[in-house]
C-alpha cells in the first residue's frame, strides 16, 4: 500500500512556544485516521502544518511520496499539495453563492466553463445542496453550511482530506448525519482522511485508527479499540470517554 502522508521529526514553534515535538505519522492511501487530544495539545497546528498554512522549524512532510516541506522551508505551495481542509469555523466566503464557492475552487483545474458548472452542481447534489446553489452562506442553515464546506473541500478531488473539528459545534442528530455523509463520500472518493476531533463518538464513527496527541507529542497511535484497552495512566480520561461511547453504542 502506498503512503498518502508521511511526517518525520516534525517540530513547530508558535511565538517562542514549542507546540509540536518530533512528530512522526504516516497515513496510507485511502486510510481514515482520527486525531484526538485535549485543547492546546497541537492538533490544529499539526493539520495547518500539513496544509502548508504553518511552517515547521524542523522535520519533513511528504504527500503522495513527494516532499512538500523540509526543515523550515515550504517546497510546495499550499494550493499545489492536492489536499483539502475543512476548517473548524468552516471559513466560507460570505460574498459567494454556494455554486460560486465550488466554481472558485474548480477554477484552478483548466476546465471549460460548462464542465466546471456541471462538476460544481454535481458536487452540490452529492451533499444534498442541489437546490441551494444560488444561496450565500448567510442564507443557509447551520447544517447546509457544513455540507457546503464539505462539498467545497471534496470538489477538487483531494488525495488527502483534513478536517479540523468541523462538527464540534453541531447538535447530535446533525453530527451523526454529517459523519455518515463524510463516510459515504470517503468510500466513494477513496481519498485518505485525517479528522481532528476531541469527541470520541466522531472518532469511532469516522476512523478505525486513532492518533492521540498530548502536549505536542504523539502518545498513542493504533486501532480505536486498542486505545480502550490501553493501560497508560495518561490516557485514562480519553479511554473512559471512549468506553462510555462504546457502551452507549452497544446498548
Amino acid at each position: 500500500m502506498t503512503t498518502s502522508l508521511a511526517i518525520t521529526g516534525l517540530r513547530v514553534e508558535l511565538g517562542r512556544h514549542m507546540v509540536l515535538h518530533d512528530i512522526g505519522l504516516t497515513i496510507a492511501d485511502g486510510e481514515r485516521v482520527a486525531l484526538m487530544g485535549a485543547s492546546g495539545s497541537g492538533k490544529t497546528t499539526l493539520v495547518r502544518t500539513i496544509a502548508g498554512l504553518q511552517l515547521a522549524i524542523a522535520g519533513t512532510v511528504a504527500l503522495g511520496g513527494r516532499k512538500v516541506s523540509e526543515g523550515g522551508r515550504s517546497l510546495v505551495a499550499p494550493s499545489r499539495r492536492r489536499i483539502s481542509l475543512v476548517f473548524q469555523d468552516l471559513a466560507l466566503w460570505p460574498h459567494m453563492t454556494a455554486v460560486q464557492h465550488l466554481l472558485f475552487v474548480l477554477g484552478g483545474q483548466s476546465l471549460s466553463r460548462r464542465k466546471a458548472d456541471e462538476l460544481a452542481l454535481a458536487a452540490l447534489d452529492d451533499v444534498g445542496l442541489g437546490d441551494r446553489a444560488g444561496s450565500r452562506p448567510a442564507e443557509l442553515s447551520g447544517g447546509e453550511r457544513q455540507r457546503l464546506a464539505l462539498a467545497r473541500a471534496l470538489a477538487p478531488r483531494p488525495e488527502l482530506l483534513l478536517l479540523d473539528e468541523p462538527f464540534a459545534s453541531l447538535d447530535l442528530p446533525l453530527k451523526l448525519e454529517m459523519t455518515k455523509l463524510l463516510r459515504q463520500r470517503q468510500q466513494a472518493g477513496g481519498f485518505s482522511m485525517l479528522h481532528v476531533t476531541h469527541d470520541p463518538l466522531d472518532a469511532l464513527r469516522t476512523a478505525p485508527r486513532v492518533v492521540l496527541l498530548e502536549d505536542g507529542a504523539v502518545v498513542f497511535d493504533g486501532r480505536t479499540r486498542e486505545l480502550v484497552n490501553e493501560e497508560t495512566p495518561a490516557l485514562a480520561p480519553i479511554r473512559a470517554a471512549l468506553r462510555e461511547v462504546l457502551e452507549v453504542l452497544t446498548d
Binding site: 496544509a51 494550493s79 471559513a91 466566503w93 460570505p94 484552478g108
Partner: peptide
C-alpha cells in the same frame, strides 16, 4: 476564509 482560498487556488 482567505486561508481556505489560498489553499484551494493560491
Amino acid at each position: 476564509p482567505l486561508e481556505a482560498a489560498a489553499l484551494a487556488r493560491g
